[in-house]
Design a protein around this nucleic acid. Structure first.
Lengths: 208, 208, 208, 208
DNA sequence: CATGAATGAGGTTTCATTCAT
DNA sequence: GATGAATGAAACCTCATTCAT
């Protein structure tokens, strides 16, 4: 007797309140962390009664789950578009990373929650892994195209390259989040892409 | 600084029980996450009474704090040694990363807790930042030496490079943790270092 | 008497919806028990909105109260008729018990609710006692008539006899309800009446 | 991961507090009914903190369950003894019923809870049925012995007889409970047994 | 030092009831 | 009359922490 989907208003074109609660929750989660946030705080921030939350979400966990779902879809279509807008691999990579940084800069609460809660495993593991995979696949496509174009090295260890890129971008965002979002994140994109492409070694260096 | 030194036995060269509890806690945190772990579980795992925990730790948070302190110091001296063991920048970098991966592979519980709980901000933020800073500084030193040696590009945006390296290593560890530690993590070190040094672009590529 | 007549439509010859809700409620109560039933479930079963219930009933308790009132009146007139249809005490008793079992068999939901919720005391105590009294009085009349007719022993402890009969019938119904109504309840009537009249002792037995 | 038997102190020879809580709970249940009773009320009545309840009982339901278990065992051994103390069926029956009434009179809270909550089905159904069965079996034994002795009629419909007796006794207790326990319940035993044995019909009556 | 029973604040969640539409 | 989204009181239960032994 799970009291879920049939009781909860997921349809209704994501009614006004659904989004109000979701945004409020993300704000509170960003400020306090998921575990230290209380449903009451979220309700107050959203300007609704505690019980109202449960008309739109199955439970507290479900709020975070819905967020991953909702923001993810939204952000991912942006990523995809950004990649499509360019016609060579390097520009695709640059566009992807610019877009990534731009979107996270645009909504810092989202960024904080993504960066902080996504590493928690347990209940959200499945979602996070899926999310991560989508991103890695996107990078994978771009790199493979780059290899075909001759713009990227053929002998790359692809699955490592993907993590190498995601990890670096992630850390750049983390740092920005930790710093309170006090500087322009997007401006990191181009230098970062250069590092990806050229590495840090001096020209023609033999490394192994 | 911490208002507890008088009650809690931090001296005594870290008695047997102190470490037993700490290791037990890390095991439990790794399995359940910090918030879902209970003091009782830790006590049971350590084979002591619940109350005993409070003879060695101020409270639940303090356990995690002590862990960051304890493991950090231990691991950091290893990192420092690894760097010192080489006499050129590239080898220092390679040694650092090998050591990092080796240590995290050696103690997977530690790895899980580090990777998961360190991103939570709030109560542990200060510690984590400090930790992160130590690592970044170490990388910074190596890179600067590399620039002097001529082994690394002079025009690098140093603070970005540091995050670029930390982030990538971190993500490689995360992936390994998510996969249940099922493959050899250390073998990622050399390919990773190559990516840092040469990037993913084909030789002589102009990137901007 | 009830402080609500002005708000609630008790007049109007019990509109269609009133009965729909009442029957729905009894069904739900029978399935889940009064306390575990929610007003929403009742509304859904009745095919009306939650709020509509409050146009016909003062509150959740009132639904059960109205049920006791409504079914009681209805069933009691049947009992009275059954008794009247016979012209000697033994047949009256037999008719009463047959009727009782028949009516409860006819509407198992009613039976379940009657048997289960009537023993709860507290809020419904008054109603239940009244109900019980009506039944006991009916039995009393029959037995007294039997005594006058010479068909029943003169020295009976009347108030005990009444409970003795009611209790036995009740338990027979309980058992049938517990068994899921899987056998014919009415067929218990005649053997039961024989037990009332002859007891279980062998003929001519001296019992004290 | 049901947090039950391993966490809860069922051993310890039913420690002092276990019984204090149980008796307090029964008192509160008797006064308010199970559903209207709150854990806080029980805790206050027992003179312990709310949380303490959960050291001894898995949850609120478990309190009632434990009660059925505990009192049942206790009371049933009394019933069995009472039956054994006589050496003919009629006396066994009389002893059983006297004992039943005596025990319920002795502890009115128990009586109230037994009579009221035992009819609720749902969560406690299994227990109640078991309980009921034990009692019915005991009666069954006695009646069968009576038949062998020639003290009871051979042609009896045994399963009906059992319910007939249990029901009547039950109702006598209910009435006494409803009346606030204001009269002597045990004095009902002998007249009741006479009704069982001789019925209410006049001597030699043909009933069918 | 060590214990673990006891505490009680505080969180999540349910659901009877209301009221603007 | 009818609706059903919204309310918020109140219940159950957990668990970090204390303290008498």
């Amino acid at each position: 007797m799970t009291a879920s989907a049939d009781k909860i208003n997921y349809s209704k074109a994501k009614s006004d309140k659904y989004h109000r609660i979701l945004e409020a929750a993300i704000k509170v989660f960003a400020e306090q962390g998921f575990f230290h946030s209380t449903v009451s705080q979220i309700a107050k921030e959203a300007g609704v009664a505690d019980g109202t939350i449960y008309l739109y979400f199955k439970n507290k966990d479900d709020i975070l789950l819905q967020f991953f779902n909702y923001k993810t879809k939204q952000v991912f279509s942006q990523f995809r578009e950004a990649v499509n807008r360019a016609d060579n691999a390097k520009d695709k990579l640059r566009n992807l990373i610019r877009c990534h940084l731009r979107e996270f800069q645009r909504d810092r609460n989202m960024a904080v929650v993504f960066q902080a809660e996504a590493r928690q495993g347990r209940q959200f593991e499945k979602y996070i892994k899926e999310l991560s995979k989508m991103y890695l696949d996107l990078i994978g496509e771009v790199v493979e195209m780059g290899q075909e174009e001759g713009a990227m090295r053929k002998e790359l260890y692809l699955s490592l390259v993907k993590r190498f890129i995601l990890g670096a971008v992630d850390e750049v965002i983390n740092t920005w989040v930790s710093a309170g979002g006090s500087y322009d994140l997007v401006s990191m994109a181009d230098p970062l892409v250069e590092l990806f492409l050229r590495g840090i070694g001096s020209n023609g260096s033999r490394t192994v």
